[in-house]
Design a protein around this nucleic acid. Sequence first.
DNA 1: CCGGATATGTTGACAGCGTACACATCGGGT
DNA 2: ACCCGATGTGTACGCTGTCAACATATCCGG
Lengths: 207, 207
Amino acid sequence: MPRSRTAYHHGNLRQALLEAALELTRAGGPAALVVREMTARAGVSPNAAYRHFADRDALLAAVVEQVQARMAEQMAAPARPAPDDPDAAVAGLRAVGLGYIEFALREPGWFEVAFATPRLAGAGDLGRPAGSLPPPLRRLVEALDDLVAAGLLHPDRRPGAEWPCWSAVHGFALLALQGPLREVPAEERRAAAARTVDAVVRGLLQQ
Amino acid sequence: MPRSRTAYHHGNLRQALLEAALELTRAGGPAALVVREMTARAGVSPNAAYRHFADRDALLAAVVEQVQARMAEQMAAPARPAPDDPDAAVAGLRAVGLGYIEFALREPGWFEVAFATPRLAGAGDLGRPAGSLPPPLRRLVEALDDLVAAGLLHPDRRPGAEWPCWSAVHGFALLALQGPLREVPAEERRAAAARTVDAVVRGLLQQ
DNA sequence: CCGGATATGTTGACAGCGTACACATCGGGT
DNA sequence: ACCCGATGTGTACGCTGTCAACATATCCGG
């Protein structure tokens, strides 16, 4: 409810600024988050932003949060498999990995933003409070738990299983966005993505 | 031969600038490459740099080249295995992967620099001119070829085998440098690195 | 041996960036 | 009815990369 648009007080500028910031970073990543441009799009003077964010870093952190949420939404979310369906468990893990890569390729700017923070808040301890993890990571944790439930991954091997998976898809995404994989044709790239996910999943199951 | 140090003409400024740039980026990555600071360290005015580099991007490209060379030097280079030694071939591939990760952790700034280029020159076509590939990549190509020679990887599976390997170690390095893996203790991190390399190698061999 | 051409370094300036400080204006509680 | 805190504006500062004009050292042909 933006009540009196008195032309001086905006209503809820914070929201408007965040939307402008999302628009900017979508096209150009974190580097495209320029305070003056963002405030101009909101029809406001540059310094107005400082009533809502301490500095550019704080602003970026807020954008990161928004982007991570969208990322989780857009990552394919198939129904979790029944505990006794091994094939579905493996398929679920694969889907999480490919979803990660797909998001990165579809929204390069936002993907870069999602990691543009000194410390990815609360992802270091993969510990118990599963609900407090960044949403994309929670998907991965669940898929691995399902793998254990299906009897495909020994519980002893469960701790730390996130890292190989995350490493593979994260690395692939970056090679495809900023690295040499950008120059290979889309078809071949898609095959490479599938093979990468496949290799790490297979390797994980047999360790 | 820096002959007359007449205090106006430097001798070979280009080299001095590159060394200053390496020093700066070593500590702070590409973002720390500040023209004014670099020229100051060389004892010269800011604009002097423009006699040797078109602009900051060209300068960065030159630094990238230097860093990639150092990276190749520092990546463990064990003797290539005999064509009939499967264990040695696998060990070789593992060493390349772990060397990549080790370099990234030992020289975070330089590692970031190594990828701070719009297009990683000539890495897109993993094609024939093996000598023209960036040095770190060549190591990987050789290790995979050795795997084929040892009969562990079917020649049909050889093309594109670089991507899963590179993805895994690259992703791991970034998660460890800028991502959540930074917060986990070094011991655990080392184990995760080994497991990641292991998983992808194992997965690759069984595809 | 000398004198202009050329390479190389300096000076000064400009636009764009994040942001600190002082001031203007609006909305809500006493 | 008033005033006070929240919110937006204007001005300014230091930092960045980079351009244009100028100064100086080196080299090459007469």
